[in-house]
Design a protein around this nucleic acid. Sequence first.
DNA 1: GCTTGATCTAAACCTCACTTGAGCTTTCAT
DNA 2: ATGAAAGCTCAAGTGAGGTTTAGATCAAGC
Lengths: 156, 156
Amino acid sequence: MHRTDLIAIGDLAARTGVAVSAIRFYEAKGLLAALRTAGGQRRFLRADIRRVSFILIAQQMGLSLEEVARELASLPAGRTPNAADWTRISTGLRARIDARLAALMQTRELLDQCIGCGCLSLKKCGLYNARDKAAQRGAGPRYLLGDRAGEIAEVG
Amino acid sequence: MHRTDLIAIGDLAARTGVAVSAIRFYEAKGLLAALRTAGGQRRFLRADIRRVSFILIAQQMGLSLEEVARELASLPAGRTPNAADWTRISTGLRARIDARLAALMQTRELLDQCIGCGCLSLKKCGLYNARDKAAQRGAGPRYLLGDRAGEIAEVG
DNA sequence: GCTTGATCTAAACCTCACTTGAGCTTTCAT
DNA sequence: ATGAAAGCTCAAGTGAGGTTTAGATCAAGC
C-alpha cells in the first residue's frame, strides 16, 4: 500500500539501533530473512523492525540467539510476532526473569549470612552449593559451565 | 606442622570442584601462586583451597577474573583472604547484587507493562530504553555492547 | 626396577555475539 | 552521467574463560 514497504539494511539498523554488521549476522543465523534487489542488496519489511526489537528484548531477558531463533521459528509460517504472540512469549520471558530474581535473592541472602562469618568453607557456606544450581542459569553467556563441579569438599 | 601442608594440583582441583586446567589458567592469570617440586610440579598451600573458593564465589557475584585479581591483589602482602578481608570484600559484593536486583526488577516491571500491550514500539516500550542503561551491567560477559545504540526510533 | 597414573608445557581450539577489513558493486540525487 | 554513500561477500579477529591435545616427565607403589 505504501510507496516504500521495503527498507534497506542501513534504515533497519538506524531504526533499531543495531549495527549493520549485526543485522547481516542475524540474517546469517536465520533470525531474519531479507529480499534482494536486482543488484543483490537486501531489502527488509517494515515488520522486521519489530522483529529485531523482539530479538533485542529477548536477548536482554537472557536468551541466546539460538533460543531466540527457536522462539521465532515456533511462530506459525515464520511470521513476525504479533500482539498475541508477543503476549504468549513475553509471559514466558517473565518466568525467566522471576527465576533469575529468585536466584539472585537467594544468593544475597546467603551472602548476608556469610558476611561476618568469613568461613568460606565449601561445606558450610551455602553460597557454594547455590553456585551451580540456580544462579545465573541462562543469564547471558555463561554457557560453558555445564554442570561440572560434581563433588565439593570441605576446606579442612 | 602437618606432614603435608602442600597439595598437588589434582587435589586442589578435587577439593574445589574446579578442573585442573582451570587451576593452571588461574595461576597464569596471577590469581594463584604455586610452589614447585624439584621435578617441576606445582604444590599449593592448603589455604589455596580457600582462595579458589573466593574466586568462584566472587565470579558468581559477577566479577570478572580481572576484577577478582584486583581484589586479591589489594590484600596486604598478597595473602589469602581472612575473615576480616572477606567481610570487607563481601560487603562490596552485596552492593553489586543489589544493583543487579534493582535492574532486574525494573526490567520485570517494564515487561509487565508490555505484556498485553504487544506494541514492541521502540519509542513507547520502556523495555527498550532500559536496555543499555541499567540491566545486566557487569552481569557476565556482555562486554562488547559498549554504549552503542544511540538513537532509537519508533516502529511506525 | 618397573609400571601406572599424575603432571608438565605449549599451542591450538572452543563458544557466543559480533566487528573489522579488503576489495568491489549498487543506488540515488543532482 | 557521475560521484558519494551505502551495500555486497568472505575471511579473519576479538574477548572472556576456559578445554583439549600431544608428547614428554615425574612420583609412587609393588
